[in-house]
């Protein structure tokens, strides 16, 4: 079994209203050196197959087909073997 740890972030150039709001608040709290706050998503799932290549193929397909909107988002993931 392979656990996929998937990180979804906004593409460069896409305005992130949530990130902007958090950044503003952080500034007001005195964190004056903080910039470029981006809020993304984290998804975990387990693929029940012994083959790493097969898990990799499925996770990549799931990311592209379901988990991200390619207009806005991009993704990275890593596979961890679950024993």
């Amino acid at each position: 079994m392979w656990k996929a740890e998937i990180r979804i972030t906004l593409k460069e150039g896409v305005v992130d209203p949530q990130g902007k709001a958090v950044e503003k608040t952080l500034g007001e709290l005195g964190y004056s050196q903080v910039e470029q706050v981006q809020i993304g998503k984290y998804v975990e799932l387990v693929v029940n197959t012994p083959q790493r290549a097969e898990a990799d193929r499925q996770v990549d397909e799931i990311c592209r087909k379901v988990l991200i909107n390619p207009v806005l988002e991009e993704y990275t993931y890593q596979l961890v073997e679950v024993l």
Binding site: V15, P17, Q18, V71
Partner: peptide, 17 residues
């Protein structure tokens, strides 16, 4: 319709949140 790709573009949270 945007998610199916029948129309171009995507939706973000309102700028006011």
């Amino acid at each position: 319709l945007l998610e199916t790709g029948l129309l171009p573009g995507a939706m973000l949270p309102n700028s006011s949140l």
